[in-house]
Structure formats: C-alpha cells, structure tokens
Nucleic acid binder design. Structure first.
Length: 651
RNA sequence: GCCCAAGUAGCUCAGGGGUAGAGCGCAUCCUUGGUAAGGAUGAGGUCGCGGGUUCAAAUCCCGCCUUGGGCUCCA
C-alpha cells in the first residue's frame, strides 16, 4: 500500500492511499473543517470529496473557508446550481444556459440563464426561492463525475439541452467533469468545485428577473436571467440588503425630484435633461471650479456649433464608425447636416484656421460642449445615460515632446478636482496595445512606444499607482481612464486622457518645426467628468443630496419663530445675500418645528432660527443640518464662518 | 432593439364592471408656537394612449407609448 505525504501549513504527514481531501482535514484540523467548503490541492481548487493525487510527490493542501473570497465565490456558484435545480424541479423541460458567480458587480451575487417552457414572471421568484430553501434543508450532496466528451454530449443531448451541448463542443477536448445534485433532476457541466452539500447554503435571495441573450449575442436565443445573491451567513445577507436600501434612498432620480434639481419629460424626449433652477446652481458651481482651474492651467475657451455638414463627419470618420449613435441628417438648401456626437472636429477646425509654429504649441482648447447621441431607449437611465449631454471637453494639440508634461498636468488637474469633491479614492487605468488580436492599430510602432512610455512616465512621476491594461487601447491611441469610488463604495468611470494618432492624420494637421519642416502634432482628448449630467448624478448620489455649502442650491435659510420677527429675518437674509450667499427666508405662519423639518428635508446646510432673543441681542441662532443646534452668534461671526467654508470649498 | 414589471391628483400610493380615494404638497382662514409635521376649509384627476368586449370599462381583452430592472465576470 502506498502513502501520500500531505503538507498542511507547517505540518507534514503521511496518509495511506487512497484518501480524500476530507480524510486529510479530518485528521489534521477538525476546527477549520467546520468552516471549510472545498480545498486547494497544490494550488488547484477541488471538492472536499476528491481524492488526493497519488503521484509520489508531497501534496500541499489548503482549506477554502466560508469567510474567504474564494469561499464566497463557491457559495454563490453553488447557489446558482441550487437555483437551476429548483427551476428544473418546478418547470421540467427548462433549458439551461450558464450560471456563474458574480464577484465584482455589487448589485448581484450570481445568476442563471434559462429558457423555461413558459415565460417566467417576477411572481415566480418567491416560489423558486422557497423550493431552493427546502432543498437546502435536505443537505443534498453535490456529486462529481469525470466523463468522456462523447458521453457528456450523449447525456445532454438526451436531456435536450442544446445550449449545454454547444458549450461542451466548444470547451471539451477529451474528458470533463459533470455535477449532480442528489434527489434532483439537476445535472450540470461544470468545472467546480462546489460546497459538499446544499445544507451549506441558506443565506441567499433571488433578486431580479431579466432578459439576456445566449452568449450576449442579440442574434442568438433570447433567454431569461434570474439574479440572486448569497452569503456565508444570514447576518451578511441582511446587512447587504440594508445597504441596498440605503443606495435606493440616494437614487439621483428620486432626489432630483424631491430636491427639485432636474426633470426628464417624455413630452420633450427621452434622455433629454431639463435642469431646474436648483440643479442649475449646482452646475454653475461645478463649471466655476472648472473654469478657475482651466484659466490657471493655460487653457483657452472656445465655443462651437451643435451641427456640422455631413462631409465633416465623413472626414472625421464618425460617419463610418459611429453612425449608429448619430442622429439622422437634416437638410438645408440641399446640404446635409448632422448633430454632433463629439466636439473634436470643431476644435480641429480652430487649430487649422491658421498655420501653426512649434512655438504656438501646445494649443489647449476647452469647451463645455453639448453633444447628442442616439442611445437605445432601453439603456437610458436618469442622468447617467442620456441622449443629449455636455462634455467638459478639451483638446490639446501638442508636439511629440510635450506629451509627457501635458499628460502630467491633466493628472494633477484631475486629482485636484476630484479631491475637491471629496472623492479620495481615484483609480487610474493605463490602456495600451497588446493582446493576441491586432485591432488594426493606427500609427507607427515608434509613435506608440513613445506615447505609451510618456503616459506611463507621467503617471509614475506623479506617484500615481495605476493598472496597466493590455489590449484596451483604442485603435487610434493609448489612454488613461479615471475611475472614482463614491461614498458608498460604487465605482464610476468618469474622465479619460486619450492620445489620438488618427484625427491629426485624417485632418492633415501640421505645424512648422524649428527645422522649418512640416510636422504632425499629437492630439490629446481629455475630459474629467465625461458628461456633466452624469457627474451631477454621481454627485447627487455621493452626497445623498446634501451638497457641501459651496455647491448647495440654497446655502442658508432664515426661520423666524413668529411673525413679529419677519422683518428682522428679511434683514438678515438680505445682508447674507449681499455677501454673496444663496439665502431663502421662510416667513410662513408655520411653527418653528415644521420650518426646520422642511429645511432638513431640503438638506439646506444652515438654518438660522430667529426669535425675540436673537432680535434683542442682534444675533442668529445657528442650526447645522447634521450637527443640529450649534448656538447663537453674531451675524458677522456666522458670515465669517460660512465665507471661509465656501471659499475653501470645504466638504 | 429584446425579456420581465409598472403606469390612478404635483409626489407616494390604495381601490377596482355601475360615473374616483388617502396621506403629503398647494390655496385660503384660524393659530404666533424656541430646534424634524398646530388646526379648519378648499382647489386639483379623460384612472398613459388607441381599439375591442359589454346596457355599462379606470377596472376584462388586444395593440401602442412611457417609466423601472436587466441584456456574456462564459462550463
């Protein structure tokens, strides 16, 4: 009888063969076994019930416990299988697609794609969930079997699972593993591993029903996707559900209405934003901050039209590559025009309007340029995905040797601005050429190498850690994408700094060098917010509608306790207005409690409660929206306090 | 575009084959009250749009529109 040497942590111990992973843990560590769902054997994930390899070499085993990320993924994946098993039980004849765990999408934990004999509706979800709970209680084992390709195909053909057969044909060369759940009609073609039995599952919930295409391809089968989530423990699921509710409370569409910031009306068109006066204030402040920075950084301000001749879009390449997202042409005196989906060609027009010398570069043109894109109706979402929006756009026309410095300044700019809004977690991604497929990259290797090197060195010089992503560059140049994390941990892709070898070529841009020869400039597209509408949406959710003083649509509200005080209240309000603040006064005959409630719900940063005492002492009693009553002070002292806050753009 | 759900007063929603309900908001009046809702009265709706069934449709059926959740982290 042979032996297997098992290494577990520092322990090395021989076991008589054959033995399973479970046998090893039973002998080595009963404590950890309770939390263990599967294991890594020589670094490879396997089921607890799998046999230890008898190769003669030492076998290294590690537990995959329920409190690890790997463990959670296992739970979610196994729960997805439980979901499929419950559906097969309730709806015989259902065709299965795929059912992965989702670890990066904070909204969901797993899904399973199916084609049921009838269209399922949301009303079916509780029924399916109940079945899953019942199956979980029965501690049904997940069983694994290794079979030949031909036999797997037989099994799934016999079960009339065409999609599974397609997968098997694609993926399997000789043998593969399949999984059963005992006492259930479920069989899946799956690498595993899984939890040992369904009793390890329980903290799960089905969340949503949606449509999905097989392999994400709109020309393939339309399937139904059931989303759910799962955790190791019920408390974690409860906490997650609670956080989800919190996120709903921050929904910018809800707050946009409640705080009267913006609206979208079908009478005007889907995906078109009406900025209300209070939203307009926030936008003006957002633009003011940008303008200050742009001025200091040597940008110039340009303004360009919303439509241009169709021929321009042919030259720019938009007509060829981007036509689906552009509004149809409109004719004026036999000449066709199209709404602009991007601002670049106009800025190029400004560059080209006169000959440029190397001494003139860089040229930095900025514009809050409004563009229109014909997004599919189903993808529209509040402020986040719209059909008309303004980009805080800028195009830099630079000499090849200037790329580094300009990119570095863009990075400083981004960090400064996002920091002002309180986004302290900013991620940078450098997208470069690479990967197996050749995307038909434009421009010489020389240019690319130089450009990628300059982007990377700008990031390094600024001490910015970044992720380098091979193969994600656009065909026309490498780029840096900027992502921010908001107050509740959601990540938003916002700005981009993009090098472009394409448009300078297409538009034959040039400048005269010190050698008196013509050279081609590089073009850098950069936007920090991407779309100011979208960034506004992100801000609303980030602050949950409670904008910092400098952004708040109403900064101070004056609340007289009785009608006797109304006159004094108006004086106070006027004085603050003259000092440059946005002030309201509430002289309605409500009780002070009601006025405060109103102001709190409008999330106004400061409330000045004025009664006989304040009138007599020439003071204001200050209530801050989060801290509550912070005591009485002179109006001058209050003014000083908020002036400082406003000027420093404190959070 | 495709799958599921929902469209009733400005907002949040209840109701449901026999001519429309609540709370909030709004208006007017009473009240002048010290840190998150004082009281009374009143105005407000082609029940998303179009068609069908019916003596009768907001309600049942069909179509459309809009809104919301989604639409490859592959076995």
């Amino acid at each position: 009888m042979s032996e297997i040497n098992v290494k577990y942590g520092e322990n090395l111990r021989p076991f008589p063969a054959p033995a399973t992973v479970l046998d090893a843990f039973k002998a080595l560590d009963r404590d950890v076994l309770k939390r263990t769902l599967a294991a890594k054997v020589n670094g490879e994930q396997v089921d607890l019930g799998s046999s230890l390899p008898e190769t003669g070499e030492t076998v290294v085993i590690e537990p995959i416990t329920s409190d690890s990320d790997d463990g959670l993924e296992l739970i979610r994946h196994s729960t997805a299988h439980l979901l499929a098993a419950a559906i097969l039980d309730l709806f015989p004849g259902t065709k299965l697609g795929v059912g992965p765990a989702l670890m990066e999408d904070p909204r969901y934990g797993y899904y399973y794609d199916i084609i049921a004999p009838r269209q399922l509706t949301e009303a079916d979800l509780p029924v399916i969930e109940k079945k899953m709970k019942a199956m979980a209680k029965q501690n049904l084992p997940y069983r694994r079997e290794i079979v030949e390709k031909a036999r797997i195909l037989d099994i799934f053909e016999g079960r009339e699972e065409p999609l599974k057969c397609e997968l098997i044909s694609d993926k399997v060369t000789d043998t593969a593993s399949i999984y059963y759940i005992d006492n259930s009609p479920f069989i899946d073609f799956c690498l595993g591993p899984h939890v040992p039995h369904t009793g390890k599952l329980g903290a799960f919930k089905l969340l949503a029903l949606s449509g999905a295409y097989w392999k994400g391809d709109a020309t393939r089968e339309q399937m139904q996707r059931i989303y759910g989530t799962a955790f190791a423990r019920q408390e974690e699921l409860d906490a997650w559900l609670k956080q989800r509710e919190e996120a709903e409370k921050r929904d910018h569409r809800k707050l946009g209405r409640e705080l009267d910031l913006f609206s979208i009306s079908d009478d005007y068109g889907q995906g078109l934003i009406l900025w209300h006066p209070k939203g307009g204030v926030v936008r003006m402040e957002m633009e003011r901050l940008l303008r200050e920075e742009l001025e200091q950084r040597g940008y110039s301000f340009v303004f360009t039209p919303h439509i241009a001749k169709r021929a321009l879009w042919v030259t720019s390449g938009h007509e060829g590559n981007y036509s689906d997202s552009m509004y149809a042409p409109t004719s004026i005196e036999e000449e066709e025009y199209r709404l602009k989906p991007m601002n670049c060609p106009f800025h190029i027009g400004i560059y080209k309007s006169s000959p440029r010398s190397y001494r003139d570069l860089p040229q930095r043109y900025s514009e809050m340029g409004t563009v229109y894109r014909a997004e599919l109706s189903g993808t529209l979402h509040g402020l986040m995905r719209v059909r008309g929006f303004s980009v805080d756009d800028a195009h830099l026309f630079v000499r090849p040797d200037q790329v580094h410095a300009e990119v570095a300044d863009c990075l400083d700019f981004a960090i400064k601005v996002f920091d002002t809004y309180g986004f302290d977690k900013v991620k940078f991604e450098l997208s470069v050429r690479g990967g197996a497929e050749n995307k038909g990259y434009l421009g010489s290797d020389e240019d690319w190498n130089a450009a990628e090197e300059q982007l990377a060195s700008a990031l390094k010089e600024r001490g910015i850690s970044y992720e380098r992503i091979e193969g994600e560059a656009a065909f026309y140049g490498p780029k840096i994408d900027i992502k921010i994390e908001d107050a509740i941990g959601r990540v938003w892709q916002l700005g981009t700094i993009q090098l472009d070898f394409n448009l300078p070529e297409r538009f034959e841009l040039e400048f005269t060098g010190d050698d008196n020869l013509k050279h081609r400039p590089f073009m850098i597209h950069r936007a920090l917010f991407g779309s100011i509408e979208r960034f506004f949406g992100v801000l609303i959710e980030h602050y949950a509608g409670a904008f910092p003083l400098w952004l708040a649509p109403v900064q101070v509200t004056v609340l007289p306790i009785t009608d006797r005080i109304n006159e004094y209240a108006e004086q106070v309000a006027d004085e603050l207005r003259r000092a440059g603040f946005r002030v309201e006064s509430n002289t309605r005959s409500d009780k002070i409690g009601a006025k405060i409630r109103d102001a709190q719900m409008q999330k106004i940063p400061y409330m000045l409660v004025l009664g006989d005492q304040e009138l007599e002492n020439k003071q204001v009693a200050v209530r801050e929206r989060k801290q509550g009553d912070i005591g009485a002070m002179s109006l001058n002292k209050f003014k000083e306090m908020i002036t400082l806050q406003k000027e420093k753009r404190r959070l």
